[in-house]
Amino acid sequence: MAELMYWEAIRRAHDEEMARDPLVICMGEDIGLVGGTYKATTGLYDKYGPERVIDTPIAEGGYTGLGVGASFLGVRPIIEIMSVNFAWLAMDQMFNSAAKVRYMSGGQLTSPVVFRSPGGCAHQLGAQHSARMEKVFMGIAGLRVVTPSNPRQAYGLLKSAVRCDDPVFINEHELMYNMKGEVPDAEYFHPLEGSEVTRPGKDITLFAYNISVHWCIQAAETLAKEGIDCEIIDLYSLAPLDRAGIAASVRKTHRAIIVEEAEAPVGVGSEVMAIINEECFFELDAAPVRVSARNVPIPYNRGLEKASLPNPNDVVQAVRKMLGK
């Protein structure tokens, strides 16, 4: 099993799918000649040419709509939106066209398109380049939302997303493109639904996704030294959320903390709490809590930025508090 960086895993998925199917194309700003801001499409322009590796104008609504329109005729575009913040400009086409077309056409048309974009906060990019928008996408009927926490998922989720007939939004992370991890040498398709047990444990469940999985791994290591055994559930699918997987873990540990990089209101945490209430409320030994970002536009100043985002120590504190330690 080879160790790849997150961006290399994404690039490999592109390459394999484009080699297999001439109707798989990719498009976005600077993805061709330049190879992509995060290198995820490096070398593809030379290999597949400008008709299939398309450098678009800086016009997110326009090129997203173009990709969606192409998908109506069976083309499978992988559309890179350079920063998830720019997806606001593309949402009309993502939501009103791609996500709704199957339903409003009575099943006649589908939009097998993949949107992928780096979300999350990097370092001092300021309010308009530090959005966590998964909460917006995951509330839209007809759109699948997945979010890889490691190179294996980044590779396998993109492979499955390209072949799936539904529109899929892949929420990547600005800080994770250079993260290394094992990726199977053989072709691998990651399920688009479900969740993964990153770390089994018996005392408390930490629900996490994307970068917050890594904060939880760090926190769990610290807490293990104190004799606290954390279970970490990786919610790589945000739409739909894995109701059965969430309930199964709460039935096992009876305590739940949701750790998210995003602001608390209307987010993954609130949704997971609702699912716990609906599926397994009486299994709880403590009220679930969220570890979330402060509800502010992300500031530029490094100190303020750090103060507005959660970190592994916040997770440790929340666990101790819940367990009365």
Binding site: I25, E51, G65, G69, S71, F72, L73, V75, Q93
Partner: peptide, 13 residues
Amino acid sequence: PLAAGMAKAIKLK
């Protein structure tokens, strides 16, 4: 843009 996309698909095919 949807129409432009359909045209792109026609061209590819």
